[in-house]
Design a protein around this nucleic acid. Structure first.
Lengths: 183, 183, 183, 183
DNA sequence: GATGAATGAGCTTTCATTCAT
DNA sequence: AATGAATGAAAGCTCATTCAT
């Protein structure tokens, strides 16, 4: 799955063929289908895997006994860290999952396949509101800001447009986000 | 080009065939190729067209003699208005252009093909800084926030996750953005 | 269609590939699909073609002003003549159409695709009954006898089991059939 | 073998996979190959099995001390009884064995694999001739009539075209056959 | 400029068969 | 004897692109 993830993220879903994946895994084409019934289902399993992975990371942060301000920074930091060390994960999320909806229409409607991740963001937000740090606004307004922003930065990095490394933006960006969301 | 734009935006680049487009235009397949040398080039022309269109809209706002706060709101408003009345434009931007980089790698590297649009955002930002309303931070930190946020919201709408109409979020979102970017 | 018919009849439906057919027609694989949307649909068109062809032959006999006994002989004769001069037609009927029902299930249920042929046999039978030559029995009992018999003989010939040529059996067989069906 | 027989008869040879069969037998794919060297050979063994089974039934009738007229009726009756109670046997005979000759070409040329069955029909016929009840005609003319007729009726039944149950046709059909074959 | 039949490489998927365990 | 993961050739089908008219 890791192999397929990397290929999809770098070449796109449609430009990555099953033989491409099989070769990268040193496995036969036929055997691929013993594990994943179709290319679409492989794509679904991958996004679930990523959602679970990122969800776990956020959960670890949510469980910490720190202020929401610090959590905000920690989330930005971990997101960019993943984007730098496992760029295929974030790329897959942005470029395969978010963009090729026809692939995920059948089994990942709404956000079921990224449920674990979204849930943790929701927890972050609601606890921030409860603790009095964040304004009580529509969750999606906040979610869109946070995730749209982070996604946008990773995208810009991917386009080689950002002059600095992603991790150098952590302060700026977590500052902006917290400023936007705080009471 | 409008016909192709709609098809690409709704079905995706790879799931839209040249015959599909030709039929929707009541034109022959062969004749399509008299106007666009390849499917990729058609896709490039479309993103340039969108960039020019949105750039023009932003330019009109930039030229207005209003505060940056008001401009911020105006940009959010026009972005969501386009997303509601010509959803194919924003969808194309988010789902075709941003996501299928392999298509645009050759002739749209960096942001050349969306240059007109980005330039206007830059003007908005720099004038805001010059007027003392916006903090003087890295442009891309600001750009990512603004555009990532707006894109994220349109995406959530597209997934039928947002409970309200996009235009009802204009106040919340422009408030958040301005709050984040202002001094 | 004639080319595909011959290949199907000689090699079977599943052992005949689309490239096989395309090559035999000196046509490209892709172009095949401009004429027949799928292999199954090609198979359906062929059986309709055969049914129409054989139906026409029977119609010519039915229209003749001869006794049912003579018509019986004429039908056997024409059937065997087709089996000898265009063996692919009868073979297709027996070995592709009658046997691979899964292919024809969707669009040829019942006998719709061989309607023209069956109708003429029905006319032969009903006129024979009306004229007093044939016993008035269940049509299908008679149809099964007539067509099962002829099909069986062609099958035996195909297996190289028959010691003589098919046309040498015309007398024997039409005699047997008429004997069985007559009052 | 019974399991494979049922699957082949209902889904066709090519649409039945070895894993399908293995699952239905609660056996592993690999172990299947310990018993049958290939799918084709399995198919051959099955037709031999059916031929032996039907041959035995006919033998029992042939051994009876009854008139050929009564034997004729008994054969029709047993054939239809098998078609009703073990439809997979007759279906296999008609739809797999008779139709997919490419499968049986190598090891079942002529009628070697259905030898036992054909032999009994031959005995029936020759004794009928010897006893003076049946006309002394070419055996294959008689065989084609008998078996083509019965096969045709079962086919019509399979297509849901026959208005009545098969066993209700026994009288009509054995009457027709005897009428056709008798002196 | 306009047409659309024709091309053929390339795709996803299937499945008979093998073989290490 | 029994297992089932692995193989890989081959299938049906698609579609960007061409080109004679």
């Amino acid at each position: 799955m890791q192999g397929a993830l990397e290929l999809f993220a770098s070449k796109g879903f449609y430009s990555t063929t099953i033989p491409d994946i099989a070769i990268s895994l040193k496995m036969s084409v036929g055997n691929m289908y013993n594990y994943f019934k179709s290319k679409d289902i492989l794509a679904e399993e991958i996004i679930k895997f990523i959602s679970a992975y990122l969800g776990k990371e956020l959960q670890r942060i949510n469980e910490k006994d720190i202020s929401t301000k610090e959590k905000t920074r920690a989330i930005v930091a971990i997101y960019f860290e993943v984007a730098m060390t496992k760029p295929e994960m974030i790329d897959y999320f942005l470029r395969i999952y978010l963009s090729n909806r026809e692939i995920f229409r059948d089994n990942c409607a709404g956000m079921i396949c990224v449920n674990e991740f979204v849930t943790e963001v929701m927890i972050y937000f609601e606890e921030g509101v409860k603790s009095g740090e964040l304004r009580d606004q529509d969750f999606f307004s906040a979610f869109g800001l946070f995730m749209g922003y982070l996604g946008g930065m990773v995208f810009l990095k991917g386009e080689h447009i950002l002059p600095r490394e992603l991790d150098e933006y952590v302060d700026d960006i977590s500052f902006n986000i917290y400023k936007a969301l705080s009471v």
